[in-house]
């Protein structure tokens, strides 16, 4: 017998989680597809279900010195229209799914789903975003990159839920490309986000992320670090070497959306295009 819980507030939700191992449903745009059988039949949930979409306490966007805080039930629609949210992030969301889905779905759901094609994940990795997980007793913070353990694998204990996501402030220039088969509603074949800061002709920051080329986002800080501090003309000479380094670590697979060769080629072309645009 499966229980369905529709909590009135956060503390009730956390109480329920402390006693029941639940599926958490926010917008449902991932889970309702994964659990759907056929028209007219109920979805198949094998364990209890907790519906959080209407928890108003977690529907917020605010900013402080740590960054922009986005509540776990805040919908993409509201994230896109907020003045507090960085443009980079809005650009990523504007290409995610479709208007209806952006009206219903949440950023926490994109993280919780931990799909290799999750579009916001590339940006969250590149911006060093972290999330707040809460249980009945306490809270903890964890970087998105450490929270995601693999395909649909996350570091969530049964009594915890994501309550907010924090995107640190930045003044990065960025280069974002999502490659899909049509403008709306296409799951990425591949995505790329490059970001940098230059000051007085010197590379002050460099960050590179690839989505859909591996089981999780690929971002390699060791490679990035080697080029921070270089003058731009020295950096330009290093571009072939940088490309070679990424060439070694980008090993995409073939699946129903694309082939490994296509993914690899496009990933490397986008990287090159980004690197040559740094000024």
């Amino acid at each position: 017998m499966i229980n369905h819980f529709i909590p009135k507030n956060l503390s009730e939700a956390l109480d329920i989680l402390s006693n029941h191992d639940c599926y958490i449903i926010a917008g449902g745009t991932d889970l309702m597809v994964q659990k759907h059988r056929s028209s007219g039949l109920l979805p198949t949930f094998e364990k209890d279900v907790l519906y959080i979409s209407n928890l108003e306490e977690l529907n917020f966007i605010r900013s402080d010195d740590k960054g922009v805080h986005i509540g776990a039930t805040t919908k993409y629609r509201d994230i896109s229209s907020s003045e507090l949210v960085p443009q980079l992030f809005k650009d990523v969301i504007s290409e995610l799914a479709s208007p209806n889905i952006r009206n219903m779905a949440t950023l926490a759901g994109n993280i919780g789903n931990a799909s290799p094609a999750g579009d916001t994940l590339v940006a969250l990795y590149v911006l060093d975003a972290y999330l707040v997980l809460q249980n009945k007793e306490s809270k903890r913070e964890i970087l998105v990159k450490d929270f995601i353990k693999g395909v649909r694998k996350i570091d969530r204990k049964p009594d915890e839920m994501i309550t907010e996501i924090v995107i640190p402030h930045h003044d990065l220039h960025y280069y974002w490309k999502k490659v899909g088969s049509r403008a709306a509603e296409s799951i990425s074949k591949l995505s790329f986000l490059g970001a940098y800061i230059t000051k007085e002709g010197i590379i002050k920051d460099l960050r590179i992320g690839f989505g859909s080329v591996s089981i999780t986002v690929v971002r390699n800080r060791d490679i990035e670090k080697q080029y921070i501090g270089l003058k731009i003309d020295e950096f330009s000479q290093q571009i072939p070497e940088i490309i070679r380094k990424y060439d070694e670590i980008i090993n995409p697979i073939t699946d129903q959306r694309s082939t490994k060769d296509y993914r690899k080629k496009v990933a490397m072309n986008l990287l090159k295009d980004f690197l040559t645009k740094i000024k």
């Binding site: 369905h4 449903i25 449902g28 979409s53 629609r77 208007p99 009206n103 219903m104």
Partner: peptide, 16 residues
Amino acid sequence: NIPYDSCLTPIANVIG
């Protein structure tokens, strides 16, 4: 007043 896909929405999400 906001467009939703009703095929993805559990009825629990529209209470009230």
